[in-house]
Design a protein around this nucleic acid. Structure first.
Lengths: 329, 329
DNA sequence: TTGTATGCGTTATCAC
DNA sequence: GTGATAACGCATACAA
């Protein structure tokens, strides 16, 4: 393949001029510009980005660190990220950690060795110390999960309010004993949702009961498992809030297996509003998170950080929505 | 951040020696090696990959072009690709085309400008001409869909046999009028599956009927739509093979809406065996494709091509499996 | 407006 | 076994 020199020679100019038309920096005489463009066409010249990247010390690559790509929530976020990134000429370096801290390290090395211009952590299990270290030297944005104490940009939803509304909905539709299948407690969303859950109970004069809150692992099986525990209680719940759609579906499956009916006997609300909610029968009432938007905004914020030398930080909370389906009414 | 020069100075050696221990190329005296490593540690030195990439003219990046990341089939393939790539120090540049040919072009420019060492097309809608052009100058592997006439490496399953077995299964479980919701006809899988479908009918002395074959778009809605057409026939089918799990689920949904029962009145078989098959009720009988393996093998083949100067090509067919669930028995 | 020359941080080819 | 040094292909400060 031909380089910038050949183009320069063919156009009868210096490499500097070719570089100028390439980046349309400073002014080039229209006629010389035409000559250069012509030469570029003729030689089918493509600038070598490796050289440009070295020179400019950038890669136009964004590290996207996510727990698992085969989770509908994350894949939607990734779609949003990619969509926005493309608009700005950036691309996504995809990093599936599968919650393995070893691979996380490997991927973070990509940042240190300048293979990427910045990083977006989507719901990542990363130590605060590691995170602050990275944030000191590289542009970082947190997506979905974040740390409240740290001054690091993030984008998320109002998890407390969301859980509050979900519980309110269950109560308003006649339930009184609301159980909660929550997520990992190192996630801030888990703690905030628990607050919202408690608040809703309190506002409706319902006593909080320890045994009605359990942790799941976001998957279908953990929904089944926790629901089995709930149904074996002396006073089983008549409403369930789950921290993910898959756990909600798992719960519903177990309820049906037990000969009970959804929504008649027990109402169930999920979280995220992934496509699974409308595939499953009964369709699942769920808190809709703007996953695509979150991905887009995360990239937006990251690019702002990349292009602003000072310590720009932005915390963004996006709107959610309770989508009511047949698992509650 | 410190460069190789600082390390060299601190260790009291030349940059060449530092480079040697970095790549453990040729022999370095153990004691000098120790000194260098020590200096690297002390300065927390990370080689600048941009410079290395320019020098070596490689990026250790693989372009992964897929129609949509939010499709379970593709996300599993991507997981496999990433998994294997990591083992060899490669990373994935994720490109969601959303079936937009414009963005495809953009992504292919990454190859031309040397931002990636090779490309894997997963079920991509790409013109043969474009493809052969790229394959002439860059390492290319096709995954899932491919072109039979071209000498370009690919990995897939035996789609004809798979469809054959699915239809056999429907017939063996008592069905006689088998309908087929097929995929896009620019996909080779679509054509091969049709062959298998016809073959199975022929082998069972069942007449092929044009009106029992329709095209869908792989999504849930198209399954619903096509099933409506089938049920409005004078002689509706008692068995359905769908080219994707989502279409199978859509079909089942419509069947149930129509007051008929699955599997009692109509048996349904899907394709791919994505997780949706076991989430849905009834669970869906499906042809299991080794998606993760396909991703892994695709990367394997691509790396072989990258590391072999001559025109290495490999065509691989992986095993599939009919997984029987409640939608047929 | 355009050309010259230097540097980006490595790796690799020579010498020694 | 080790050290100078020339590339890699481009962008830019400076000079013209």
């Amino acid at each position: 393949m031909s380089g910038i020199k050949e183009v320069a020679k063919l156009a009868g100019v210096s490499v500097a001029t070719v570089s100028r038309v390439l980046n349309d920096s400073s002014s080039v005489l229209p006629e010389t510009k035409d000559r250069v463009c012509e030469a570029i066409e003729k030689l089918n010249y493509q600038p070598n980005l490796l050289a440009r990247n070295l020179r400019r010390s950038e890669t136009k690559l964004i590290l996207a660190i996510i727990p698992s790509i085969s989770n509908m929530f994350f894949s939607e976020v990734v779609r949003g990220m990619q969509n926005k990134a493309r608009k700005y000429g950036y691309n996504l370096l995809l990093c599936n950690t599968e919650d393995d801290s070893e691979s996380l390290k490997v991927y973070l090395n990509l940042l240190k060795s300048r293979q990427a211009d910045g990083v977006i952590f989507v719901s990542s299990a990363i130590e605060q110390q590691t995170l602050t270290g990275i944030a000191k030297t590289h542009p970082v944005v947190l997506c979905s999960e974040y740390y409240d104490g740290l001054d690091i940009s993030y984008i998320s939803i109002d998890n407390k309010l969301a859980a509050y509304q979900a519980v309110q909905h269950l109560i308003r539709t006649g339930r009184k004993r609301i159980a909660f299948i929550n997520g990992f407690d190192y996630h801030i969303s888990t703690r905030l949702r628990l607050e919202g859950y408690k608040q809703a109970l309190a506002d409706n004069n319902i006593e909080f009961r320890e045994e009605l809150v359990r942790q799941g692992t976001y998957g279908l099986k953990s929904g089944l498992r926790v629901m089995r525990q709930f149904l074996s209680l002396e006073e089983p719940p008549d409403g369930v809030l789950a921290g993910s759609d898959m756990m909600a579906i798992g719960a519903i499956k177990f309820i049906k297996q037990s000969g009970l009916k959804v929504p008649e006997d027990i109402g169930v609300v999920g979280f995220d509003d992934t496509r699974a909610t409308s595939i499953f029968e009964p369709s699942v009432t769920s808190i809709s998170q703007p996953m695509f938007d979150m991905g887009q905004c995360a990239v937006d914020i990251l690019l702002k950080k990349i292009n602003s030398l000072q310590g720009y930080e932005e915390k963004l909370i996006l709107e959610h929505e309770l989508v009511i389906r047949h698992s509650t009414v």
